[in-house]
């Protein structure tokens, strides 16, 4: 029907071809994108932090916020649309996870987010076929359900596709 805009810690899925799922300005956050060729369903999560153990209450209220709670939550939502519960057959794309320049270990949240997401995906036997991670710039990402095309944009750069 239109645009599904995801804020920090949100996740969403759709099988309506006219829909677009979009999230703005990923800094150190990572967007996980799921595409299911069988059901023509597309899902996305905008993940802010790698690990929910730092705040269980927040994780209960907003599971999309943390890598370890976002992926099961997104899979569950997509299962309601007919996708496999364990993500079988789902195509995964990852983007975001930027860092400021000359970052030290402490401030590499972008990198920790990406690592944590990959570990969790791996536990489902899933892996990303395409990724655009890291770097020192913010990314806006959108995907149209019909085309399954991931478009990235960043101020000062031409748009690109993932």
């Amino acid at each position: 029907m239109g645009q599904i805009i995801l804020g920090v810690g949100d996740f969403g899925a759709s099988n309506i071809p006219e829909d677009t799922i979009k999230t703005f300005a990923l800094g150190s956050c990572v967007s996980v994108i799921f595409l299911d060729p069988k059901t023509r369903c597309v899902g996305m999560a905008h993940i802010a932090l790698p690990d929910s153990t730092i705040n269980k209450a927040k994780a209960a209220e907003k599971p999309g916020y943390f890598a370890d709670t976002a992926i099961p939550a997104l899979l569950a939502q997509m299962a309601e649309l007919g996708c496999d519960k364990r993500g079988k057959g789902i195509i995964v794309k990852l983007c975001g996870g930027a860092n400021v320049m000359d970052t030290n270990d402490t401030f590499q949240i972008g990198k920790r987010n990406a690592l944590s997401i990959k570990k969790i995906l791996w536990s489902y036997g899933m892996g990303a076929i395409a990724e655009d991670l890291g770097g020192n710039y913010s990314r806006t990402v959108s995907i149209s359900v019909a085309a399954g095309q991931v478009i990235l944009s960043s101020p000062g750069k031409p748009n690109w596709q993932l």
């Binding site: 703005f24 800094g27 956050c29 400021v100 401030f107 020192n136 710039y137 101020p155």
Partner: peptide
């Protein structure tokens, strides 16, 4: 830095500064 990492920069310069 934390503001930019959280997705609130001011456009083309976001994240393009050095951490000391």
């Amino acid at each position: 830095s934390i503001a930019m990492m959280g997705g609130f920069g001011t456009g083309s310069d976001s994240m393009r500064y050095k951490l000391d």
